[in-house]
Design a protein around this nucleic acid. Structure first.
Lengths: 228, 228
DNA sequence: GGTTACGATTTTACTGACAATGTTGTTGGC
DNA sequence: GCCAACAACATTGTCAGTAAAATCGTAACC
């Protein structure tokens, strides 16, 4: 008997747990996801597991072949570049909107995050910097109030987790990255849509270039996900 | 694309049928999609219907509330504008790639479609023109060989079906639209990525403006889908 | 020795039934 | 007459079990 807290639907919880598991790299890319195993690992019935896998398939995190089961989708380097390009133009659109809509409070929030990133960078805390990076991008999208872009970018980012720490590890990239972010925030503060869009595109163009440059270096994939 | 001689899974067929039904407006937006009814209408089991609804939810065509069922998602005018904006930047990216990759055969294909569109426009066949329009955009994306953009735009377009004929009905829009497309094709033919991107953005900016201008006019929604 | 046919096992796809939840119509009280 | 509680209904969410498909290993044959 499962005395689980009934805060949310078991279906949603299972989805979220498996999604987190994939995003944290606790299940390796390409690994088979056998339904029976997931039933045990997630503590739900097979019907729920099936729904979860269908949902993750559409989210682009899982690949399903008819009668052959599901496996964690492997995002190739080429795909990662494509995804970053798509993100680039979408986030540039968001940056433009953000520049047009940002209130004084919004700008202050962005500057706060930027300050934290500067501290992290100075302390060589690249993980912390990367996390601040994510927050800054997320905040800009939030300020843009563009629901569609928000949805699309969230999906694209989820598929990219395997590469998220790679670009920042390129020597000297951190400093460049910070300068780019600073320019971006200033453009938004000045309510200059064109400049904000250009800054975001420029920034993500450099991210793409870093991705191309580091092609082939496989990051970690450690960790286990229950008994899978 | 590989020709699919037989629809292998009943699941896929059901998905495609319901999707077409929604996209053709045979089920009205906001209408409830009761699982039992769909079982009868599609001739499949409830499990398949459930999977179908889950998939369509992720595709943005259906809205699901916990324990309250699914209904055809209503895309508001504001959302339609957002979607068009997102499409704009993504298709502009595709146009750039297409300009860089287009072969002579590709360009010839584009010019053929453009010629057909001109004929349709001269004959006042706006439906035919709209269809040619879709083919042209699809071909550009195909030439770009950008899988990610292709996937994203396909999803966005599917959500927009309710608005697809509206913009072309704006007086004088047809002629403008054709000129924009011509410019776009010429930029691709000249392998000028910047110009192609700019042309596509300019074109879809005008589509957005037409959308804003026609806000409020509800197009047809006729047709029935079995006994639903 | 290598290849192919075949059977056992694993795994997915589907079906029917049951439980939980939301909704609607009705009745009683104020 | 109007509002609230309650009961009947409708619909979704979940579960266990069965059938179908694919893979893998084994053995026979050329």
């Amino acid at each position: 008997m499962t005395s689980r807290p009934r805060t949310s639907d078991p279906s949603d919880e299972a989805y979220e747990r498996l999604r987190q598991g994939i995003m944290r790299g606790e299940v390796s890319p390409g690994q088979r996801l056998v339904e029976a195993d997931l039933v045990e690992a997630l503590g739900v019935s097979r019907a729920v597991v099936r729904t979860t896998l269908t949902r993750l398939t559409h989210a682009g995190l899982v690949e399903k072949e008819p009668n052959r089961g599901a496996r964690v989708r492997t995002v190739s380097e080429e795909e990662a570049i494509e995804i970053t390009q798509a993100r680039s133009v979408l986030e540039a659109l968001a940056a433009r909107h953000a520049a047009e809509r940002a209130t004084a409070t919004d700008v202050a929030g962005l500057r706060t995050i930027l300050g934290e990133m500067k501290t992290m960078l100075a302390a060589q805390d690249l993980l912390g910097y990367s996390e601040g990076n994510s927050r800054l991008h997320a905040k800009i999208i939030a300020i843009s109030q563009h629901q569609t872009v928000q949805r699309l970018v969230a999906n694209l980012r989820a598929q990219m987790v395997r590469f998220q720490y790679r670009t920042i590890l390129v020597p000297g990239r951190g400093k460049e990255s910070f300068a780019e972010h600073k320019k971006l925030v200033e453009a938004i503060a000045a309510h200059d849509g064109d400049a904000a869009e250009a800054a975001m595109r420029n920034h993500l163009l450099h991210v793409t270039e870093s991705l191309v440059r580091t092609k082939g270096s496989r990051p970690d994939g450690a960790g286990l996900f229950g008994r899978i």
